[in-house]
């Protein structure tokens, strides 16, 4: 099941412009954190792809790293694209995309709320689902909780 549906010519063009990106077998693109903002700006502003819709933004806590996942859609061409950024376990931080897509605002707050990943370069990064005084980040795997079925 492919992570993205875009022609290979588009992928090749992106590789030329951003040599640091890695494209996996199922067409998921892994971007270095430092290049995320410029990569995303290119995806949004280049009329050849025109990714105007940031549909989904979430994160996963893997044993060795955090991964932030972005799902983009181009209404014009019908392309979809999955991009990932890997972050270290200590004080994970990534550039905010609120300057590009308004839909990043609440979704970044949700990821911050549940994972404790910091999004830099934006305002009002506060908890959105949990109360302000809540201790810990529940979707991290090391979060202790009761009510499991072990």
């Amino acid at each position: 099941m492919p992570g993205s549906s875009i022609p290979s010519t588009v992928i090749d063009g992106l590789k030329d412009k951003f040599p640091a990106i890695e494209v996996s077998e199922n067409l998921t693109i892994t971007v270095p954190e430092a290049e995320l903002l410029s990569f995303m700006r290119e995806l949004r502003d280049n009329p050849d792809y025109d990714f105007n819709f940031l549909t989904n933004l979430t994160a996963v806590d893997y044993p060795d790293n955090f991964t932030v996942i972005y799902n983009l859609v181009s209404f014009k061409y019908g392309y979809t694209l999955m991009a990932k950024v890997n972050l270290g376990k200590d004080e994970p931080a990534v550039s905010s995309l609120t300057s590009l897509w308004g839909s990043a605002d609440w979704q970044e707050r949700e990821v911050y709320d549940l994972f404790g990943i910091i999004f830099t370069g934006r305002h009002n990064l506060t908890r959105i689902l949990l109360e302000d005084g809540f201790a810990g980040y529940p979707l991290r795997k090391d979060f202790q909780w009761v009510g499991g079925r072990e």
């Binding site: 989904n56 979430t58 996963v60 806590d61 308004g102 839909s103 605002d105 609440w106 949700e110």
Partner: peptide, 16 residues
């Protein structure tokens, strides 16, 4: 499942 995330339309529609 290792992780499940739901893109909930009501949540995102409310962001505006």
């Amino acid at each position: 499942p290792y992780r499940i995330h739901v893109r909930r339309p009501s949540f995102i529609n409310l962001g505006f």
